[in-house]
Simulated assay, not measured.
Amino acid sequence: MKKVRITVMRKACYEDLMAKYENPMEDACAMEEGQVFIANGWQRPKGLCESAWETMSPFVMGFAHGAEDFYEGWMKNPRSAMLSCNDGFRPVSFLLEALDEEAEK
């Protein structure tokens, strides 16, 4: 199994939707643009949002086992994927990249 780099690329915030529909939340998202996590094979990296992990984990699993080219030509680099978490108020975009480095056992 291989390691997978996960980079926080962008955070959006839809304050109009939050004001209309969301109950106030303290510290709803701790992700910061530029933050990098390394998934050791199938293991969720410490500090990575659990909700975001639920969205990206099938892709991480695929990359960790050598999968490439999700959706046939979607990404310029076939060993990468751009995904967002499932928070409709403050979605975070993550770049996943398969690494050649072996996961630690």
Score class of each variant (00 low, 15 high):
M18H: 15
P45V: 03
K46P: 15
L99V: 00
Q43S: 12
V8H: 02
H65V: 06
E54S: 13
E97Y: 08
C29Q: 05
R90K: 09
I38G: 01
P91Q: 05
W74N: 15
A98V: 12
A103F: 04
A19E: 14
R10H: 09
S84Q: 09
E97C: 04
C13D: 11
A81G: 03
D87P: 01
V4G: 02
E22I: 06
M56Y: 01
D16A: 12
S57Y: 02
K3M: 13
R5N: 06
E50Q: 11
F59A: 06
K11Y: 01
T55L: 07
W53D: 14
M31C: 12
K76M: 13
A64W: 10
K46N: 13
T55I: 04
D16P: 06
P78H: 02
L83C: 03
R44H: 05
V8F: 04
R44C: 03
R5S: 11
G47H: 02
K46T: 13
L95S: 14
G73D: 03
F63G: 02
F37R: 06
A12I: 05
M82I: 12
G66N: 12
Y14R: 11
W42R: 15
E102G: 07
E50H: 14
N86S: 07
M9N: 10
Q43V: 14
D16Q: 04
G34T: 09
M56C: 05
G62Q: 11
Y21S: 08
A67L: 13
A39P: 13
Q43N: 11
E54A: 15
W53K: 05
R79W: 12
E102M: 12
E102N: 10
F59I: 09
C13I: 09
G47P: 00
E72C: 08
N86L: 11
C13F: 06
I38P: 07
G88L: 10
C85I: 15
P24G: 07
N40Y: 12
D16C: 06
M25T: 05
W53M: 11
N40A: 05
L96A: 00
V8K: 02
D16R: 10
G62I: 08
M82D: 09
L83G: 00
E26K: 15
T7D: 11
G34N: 06
R79H: 14
F63V: 03
L17M: 04
D100L: 10
A12F: 06
K20E: 04
E26Y: 15
E54N: 14
A39C: 12
Y14T: 06
V8E: 03
G41R: 05
